[in-house]
Design a binder for these strands. Structure first.
Lengths: 153, 153
DNA sequence: CGAAATGGGACCCCGGTGGTACTGTTTGGC
DNA sequence: GCCAAACAGTACCACCGGGGTCCCATTTCG
């Protein structure tokens, strides 16, 4: 697996579509739903959450809707994931210590923590404005270079 | 989230512990369970799966048990994940095309696929022998360098 | 004041994950 | 040849979280 939830996926899609318009522009949930092809209640739920987390500004009442709270090149994929899914971690003990019995004696724990941090940092460097591009055709978004722990077998 | 399952975590733990011994050595499920602190049925279930997937050799009967099928520096973390969880992908559409309605028109799809590949490749370069080290204290296991798509804002 | 919009819930269904148990089948040793 | 040790396969259950929908309160423009 190693998956993000569908809702997070939807969230990134919704934000990406808004990122294609001027930042100040206000989008209703209905419009966002239509544009993304998502059912309205779903889109609404996600937009609400994104507003709660500060990634969107919400405007109530008639003529209301949602607008980006931050420029799309300053919102990272990691930020959206954390907004919709909570703390980031490949393993549970990466962010939620104390739940695992073997924790103190677990030989792989610290390495998982490092990996989590590395992946999070990588996703943190991908702005929404990149994700919005249909097919960049350009260089890869990421290059991952392992620098194997040296000094041992 | 972006988590691996607990069972995968257990699997990596079990394999890492076996990796600390000579490759040819045979370990019974009971011993592996005791060493890892896992309940026997759980350890047994995971070891069976790892054997089915070819990462372990199994030896039946009295004096039987499991032994590594490959040298621990040639088994990657990604290989274990794929053995226990199936195809790798951050989003569903990354490996299971055709399930998502918006697929053809989804502007973020191809980028997710790239990210998935990048993460998988990174985890593919981390051998079990690294994970087994309690606290390498050395350089990071991974360095992820984003090479932002060039040629645009 | 009413319609259009968000805010905040409650609510249900389903599948997957974690975990256990049971019943074979193989194999070594006495 | 028989028994015990060990894996193989599989069925089974319980729980939790995610996906998804709906309802009602609240705000605000006209």
């Amino acid at each position: 697996m190693i998956r993000i939830t569908r809702q997070t996926d939807y969230g990134i899609l919704l934000l990406s579509q808004m990122a294609a318009h001027p930042v100040a522009e206000v989008h209703t949930a209905k419009d966002a739903a239509r544009q993304s092809g998502l059912p309205l209640p779903m889109a609404s739920k996600i937009l609400k959450a994104l507003a709660r987390e500060g990634l969107l500004h919400s405007h109530r009442g008639v003529k209301g809707g949602y607008s980006l709270a931050v420029a799309p090149d300053r919102i990272s994929v990691a930020a959206v994931i954390q907004a919709l899914e909570g703390p980031f971690g490949i393993t549970e003990c990466s962010y939620n210590p104390g739940r695992c019995e073997q924790e103190s004696s677990c030989p792989v724990r610290t390495n998982w923590q490092r990996i989590s941090v590395a992946v999070r940092d990588a996703l943190d460097r991908i702005p929404l404005s990149e994700m919005a591009l249909p097919r960049p055709n350009g260089p890869d978004l990421l290059t991952l270079i392992p620098t194997q722990a040296q000094g041992h077998a």
